[in-house]
Design a protein around this nucleic acid. Structure first.
Lengths: 346, 346
DNA sequence: ATTGGCACTCATCATGATAGAGTGCTAACA
DNA sequence: TGTTAGCACTCTATCATGATGAGTGCCAAT
């Protein structure tokens, strides 16, 4: 994979990628010698470019345009050439001060994170809140609706609130429900959802449960309440910023990208892929499969608290993206959110 | 306002509007005589069209194109010419069966309503959930987060769940909070939010409150919890359908419309205007002010249960919209949602 | 190995010609 | 007096044409 490139080729590839990132237009040999003082003539540069094209790092849209980096070119650039400097203390505080999370509930925090990150980077922001299953039980409450239907409200350790309607024995009184939730809150608090599920299953099998109808009800209800994964929360901010990018300037491309951003499902799939990884992840172009986001890159990072509630955030934009600026923003934001989740859990 | 139009003019205006609705292109005199069997020559039609243009119902994009209806033309069409037939029983059941609300929580219902309505009409769907202040108190719960911050969960009569973070005395124990919520649930259930606020204010002033610290705390907390209006919930579905419309086919228009649909604030303002009215409301074009939605029409209707929780739903699309099909869809959906809210409140 | 020179390619833009759709006007007609 | 046919006129959309300029590829000279 890691092909050899001599120094000169690297330099030239680098400036081509960088020029292309700022201009969005094919860059030619003359332009390179004009803007960067290699001591080389355009003709020499052309030779190198020709080689780079041969190797698949560059391509030309047509015979007499300049060259643009291929996805492979971008990969090489990111892996070998790009250097992301750490943020200075001042930058960090400046960045931090963009975010205002005072007294916000979880959902609003996620939304705000997306908005600010999008604003800072000028690309479309994506935030996927921690998955239900990765959260830690804190509290559960039941509210009776009509026809024996119950509204279950579940609060995770980090203050994420989810609710869901389930069917239940209509004869349950408010008093019963209170006892049930008391029981569950006493027993389950602090356990992760999979652990809760496990415990519920175990208890339901246990012998003594047969003698306590209410307790049995409690377990049944909690099983129903926690069984199915509530749909994931994805927040998209700054959709219209995508449309400002020249690569999506035609009506056709606009439609495509909007449709993609509209379909939460596709986004979840994308974001899921970087769920596990540590630090910033970069997906360039379709990266096999996923033709929906042809021409797009994704810069993501996961956040979590110590107890393991994991979410993912990042920005999506054209492959031609100023990674050196975007990466620190995403990186820092993920760390920031992790810290907030810690604080929330206390 | 209601200008006089003779029969012939009305007929011609009608077919022009309708042809334009289906074709999205200027309609000429010949096309009219060809497609509709008036016993008139194109020349006569031209005379009438010329008159209609004079009166401001039509305009021509340029000298030798056909004519297109002005907003005034559409207004006249909708007010005087359009006849919306009621849905047949079969159509109603067919429509109804598109919606699947089984065991859904409020938020999902709103989302689903938007999606289905958008799918049925092929335009972008908008749903604004009942405003916080228009709901009826059902239940309130408190969850302790870190640093004396409290998560308040409020459930309305219709099953709408809202939550919010407030600051509170860190020394309050879980036991205290339970008592507090018990007290509030006992006292406030069934009251509308304004009534609750009123009651809280009154009680806080009352003499005896001084002697019961916990009760005082309860009132303080509920005041804080219910004081500020949580931001309105607006659901937009089928954004990309907008981009299929020829009137938004240029990159520029696409950007504008996407930006508008992205800004919930603008949408809320729009939807608020039809809040009060009974039945279906139609806003054509900018309708003075609101230049953001230039070229757009809005068909909306409000829904509510008997206790008065009011929301608004509708579709947005180009002025050139098949109102005769869209109106019944919106109308029926609003009634359907009202019924669901009733059921929910029971 | 590098470079200057040169022919060649291709997209872009302005120009102009043409076809087609539709109007407005006028004169003839019922 | 209302209706119609005819005709000149206008405007757009489309296509072909040619000029321009940026950029390449190759070759021979350094």
């Amino acid at each position: 994979m890691a092909e050899e490139l001599n120094n000169r080729s690297q330099n030239i590839l680098e400036v081509i990628v960088e020029d292309y990132i700022t201009s969005a237009e094919p860059v030619g040999s003359r332009a390179i010698t004009r803007r960067h003082s290699f001591n080389l003539s355009p003709a020499s540069v052309r030779n190198v470019m020709s080689d780079l094209e041969e190797m698949g790092f560059l391509c030309s849209p047509h015979t007499s345009a300049g060259r643009i980096p291929t996805e492979k070119g971008f990969h090489y650039y990111i892996d070998s050439l790009l250097q992301v400097r750490d943020l200075s203390k001042e930058e960090e505080t400046r960045l931090q001060s963009s975010y205002r999370f005072k007294d916000m509930k979880m959902e609003d925090i996620m939304q705000e994170v997306g908005r600010v990150m999008s604003g800072l980077s000028n690309y479309t922001g994506l935030v996927m809140a921690p998955k239900f299953a990765s959260t830690v039980f804190r509290q559960i409450e039941f509210v009776r609706l009509s026809h024996g239907r119950l509204l279950v409200i579940y609060v995770s350790e980090t203050g994420l609130v989810q609710n869901k309607v389930i069917a239940a024995d209509p004869s349950l009184t408010a008093r019963d429900l209170e006892q049930i939730s008391n029981y569950l809150n006493r027993e389950m608090t602090g356990l992760s959802i999979p652990k809760v599920r496990e415990k519920v299953a175990r208890e339901l099998k246990a012998e003594r449960i047969r003698y306590d109808e209410l307790q049995k009800q409690a377990l049944e209800l909690s099983r129903e309440a926690l069984q199915e994964e509530a749909e994931d929360l994805v927040f998209v901010s700054g959709t219209s910023l995508m449309l400002e990018q020249p690569e999506f300037s035609t009506p056709d491309r606009m439609k495509r990208i909007i449709r993609t951003l509209e379909s939460k499902k596709a986004l979840i799939e994308l974001l899921d892929r970087s769920q596990m990884a540590q630090g910033v992840q970069i997906f360039i172009g379709s990266q096999s499969e996923h033709t929906e986001i042809e021409g797009c890159s994704l810069v993501t990072a996961s956040f979590s608290n110590k107890k393991g509630a994991i979410g993912t955030l990042g920005v999506i934009g054209p492959v031609r993206m100023p990674y050196s600026q975007v990466i620190p923003i995403v990186d820092f934001t993920a760390q920031l959110v992790s810290r907030i989740l810690e604080r929330e859990a206390e």
